[in-house]
Design a protein around this nucleic acid. Structure first.
Lengths: 137, 137
DNA sequence: ATCATTGCAAACACTTTGCATACGC
DNA sequence: GCGTATGCAAAGTGTTTGCAATGAT
């Protein structure tokens, strides 16, 4: 799903000022094609078959770089491990407490009641719902 | 600020089905009187003067128990350490990326656009803003 | 006497760091 | 050839667990 050619991915990386190395291209490719907000471990397990030399350190380095450059958003919806979303457009997430899956929610708005938030300079908004998905409830 | 008598705290704990031990009373007292969403470490440093026998394990045990019983809400607004809010009424939080302080926001509403969320059984909502507070921006 | 609470130390899990090696322009 | 990317191992950090000791009823 949502396949991306290596050339497109290279362009995307360069556009964000990131050297398009082999590993970086393939980590980004995985994120583009598997939009279930994977953890570092999931990315590692998925790619280490195809790229046996890949190490977790590189995945950590790469994802930190991607997040600094605004290419991915880090989700802290999980207490233990970080999750990564390659879609950085504002949207909410729902985590199923039973199966652990995380769903994107595009039709949820945040309304700031009055002038309270004007005291602050907002840089990011994180909206997480938790509960049970249609399969699990 | 917002001082609570030991008797009131005992009652609160019993009401939630929690045995009101000395340590639990004092951890709850600290949370009631210091509503800056402290970490385990902050609670430990604050109380270990008065209660030299207190251990971090007990604070972890106690806070996990409190959260199971619905007495506190766990905030995962910090990537590293959990924070605890004794006010479980629905409200949002703002974290200053400079000074690290966490502010309560009571005037922010979440509007679920249409029927999308009806697929899910929502158990909790977590809304976090990050940016710079009026002192730091 | 019994059962729950506490606390130490060790185990755990995720992430970062130091540094040497390998790669790419 | 030089600067960057990579990867191993170790360190770091927050949290949980096993189990013995303590405390309360």
């Amino acid at each position: 799903m949502n396949a991306c050619s290596v050339e497109e991915l290279k362009y995307l990386l360069k556009e964000k000022g990131i050297q398009p190395s082999f590993h970086r291209i393939h980590i980004l490719k995985y994120l583009m094609e598997n939009r279930m907000h994977p953890t570092v471990d999931e990315i590692y397990r998925a790619l280490s078959d195809k790229i046996p030399t890949l190490s977790k350190t590189t995945i950590y380095n790469t994802l930190n770089l991607f997040s600094q450059k605004g290419l991915v958003e880090v989700l802290t919806i999980d207490d233990k491990e970080a999750r990564f979303d390659v879609d950085v457009r504002p949207h909410a997430h729902f985590k199923c407490l039973s199966c652990g899956r995380i769903f994107d929610l595009w039709d949820v708005d945040v309304n700031v009641g009055d002038e309270k938030l004007t005291d602050f300079e907002v840089k990011s908004v994180h909206l997480y719902f938790k509960g049970y998905c249609s399969n699990c409830r």
